[in-house]
Design a protein around this nucleic acid. Sequence first.
DNA 1: ATGAAAGCGCTAACAG
DNA 2: CTGTTAGCGCTTTCAT
Lengths: 339, 339
Amino acid sequence: MKKIFLKDIANELNLSKTAVSLVLNNRGDENKISKNTQKRILEFAQKHNYRPNQMARGLSLGKSETIGLIVPNISDIFYAKIASHIEYKAKEFGYNVVFSSSNEDAQTEHELISSMLNRQVDGLIIASTQKNQNEILKLKKSNFPFVLIDRHYPDIKTNYVIVDNFGGAKQMTEHLIGQGRTTIGLISIKSELDAMLQRKLGYQVAIKDNGMTPNSRAIKELNFFDYQSEMKKAIKAMVTGAKSVDAIVFTTHYLAASGLRELRSFGIDVPREVAIISFDELGAFDLVDPPISASRQPVKDIGNIAVEILVNQMEDKNEKIDNKRVLKTELLIRKSCGV
Amino acid sequence: MKKIFLKDIANELNLSKTAVSLVLNNRGDENKISKNTQKRILEFAQKHNYRPNQMARGLSLGKSETIGLIVPNISDIFYAKIASHIEYKAKEFGYNVVFSSSNEDAQTEHELISSMLNRQVDGLIIASTQKNQNEILKLKKSNFPFVLIDRHYPDIKTNYVIVDNFGGAKQMTEHLIGQGRTTIGLISIKSELDAMLQRKLGYQVAIKDNGMTPNSRAIKELNFFDYQSEMKKAIKAMVTGAKSVDAIVFTTHYLAASGLRELRSFGIDVPREVAIISFDELGAFDLVDPPISASRQPVKDIGNIAVEILVNQMEDKNEKIDNKRVLKTELLIRKSCGV
DNA sequence: ATGAAAGCGCTAACAG
DNA sequence: CTGTTAGCGCTTTCAT
């Protein structure tokens, strides 16, 4: 089963490369190549297991039929799920997906974008570190097709698909208030991410709107790379002393999991003493003791819509490039925030 | 910021494409190109943001510096983690990663392999459906570099990195026996996967070795695509009637999660009435009520070793191609299998 | 209806 | 030390 090339099949069949190429790309009819010739070509290719070299094809065509996907971390189940949906949807449109993780590092993200551009991806889907404003601006100016997901740059007009972080967090907080909680804390990641700012804001607005006293001491923002050890201190500060909280909003799933571990180690009864709720969830949140309430993100929609917008822009060069989509999260009420 | 090519920089600098290409590929010194010329080239390239076209480069070089990764499902946290480690390790060696999910479908896997070959990946890492023996055999015969992970074909000599499924399952079962459990059931996926067979075998051998009566009614193998609804029946059958079990071994994480849900809905006290243990785990298994014991797979090692073997084979064509690695799982004892 | 020939951007003998 | 030249495998215009 040796490798066979376009040229070989042209030679064997006494045809030109042109004819073979045309037929193999389904352009036989429009170029009026006889049915019989077409059949011969197709059968021969099939029989000899012909595989066009996509690098050659891509070089010639000036495109690779590949989409690049850059996420902070593919082993985060949230991004893994999005990746899975992106891959599925991309395939529907005939595109492959190359992915890479930036590890929340701006420089890595920068290199990844370059590298993918080198590899001639036809478009990019990026869950950005949000620390590469210039890079994104350059991409935009060069008119290269891309869409941001999960995180966007508020100051740049681009395509993006995000969720309503503000609304989701506000709704979560209001639910706790509705349950009669009066001293509600927030534990988040220290970050410039607009998503995180919006979640904090949603929480704060809910607090104020309900006539409760905002208390900056009730807000803890942990270092992303060291959140586990900082969590211990944060929880300790929140549950001891006179101003202890009776509820905590976590701005992301791994914080909620970590926070619950610490609450337990302090012997706190969740939800009786402290109710908790999480933005986004892990697979087993419904099994946890107690089951953790969460605001679920529509991962499938995020992936699908991102691909659709991207493909539109890649294939229709006139497409406007500030296609903004803000999706709603879904509040899942479980025992962790009250009875 | 218009696109700039090798030719452009040669022209601008009044040099030949050769010189420029050499320098840009760090072969300036070995080709005795003057330091000064090198500096001019590098600076010009830098300044104009030169990006070599990897399709052209790949076509010329006959390789793409890309590794293809095929897994059953990238949104399964187990594979997502492996993918993450593979990506990281591959980058150390200068390779990119393209991934795709086969959805446990043989035909899809077949197409994926073809497609990746078309795209000129330099090597393949495959967690196979194990239903493509011929395809794998062909790959092997063509001498194309690849390594199987997680699942291997027992009848074909290939590179592979798997875990000791038999030993892990045996150890899990023995632990339950050591806890005084006397009627132990197994819930698995109906599948030809060697991994699943080995897990079942490990369970069965542990049962026999300890003088307990094997009972085929205590083994339930569910349909992969419909395991949730079948789980309800399986659990019901296991916990009702005279021969109800006092422990269950689950052969994979999502089965354990699903099984626990059903046990609860039947009002079973875990672990008092029924102890459970899982092969592999989900992120929050330690938080679940009760915390679920599990045999953890070494995902990082699986990824790293797979890449190392593959790179060896890709870069040293004399490398033997039956590099077999069987890694140990790690038993994590938590409350779900007894006090 | 089919073929010859040029070209995509880069690498690598080989010759100077 | 540098330049010329010939590909890599495929697509596509332009003749025929």
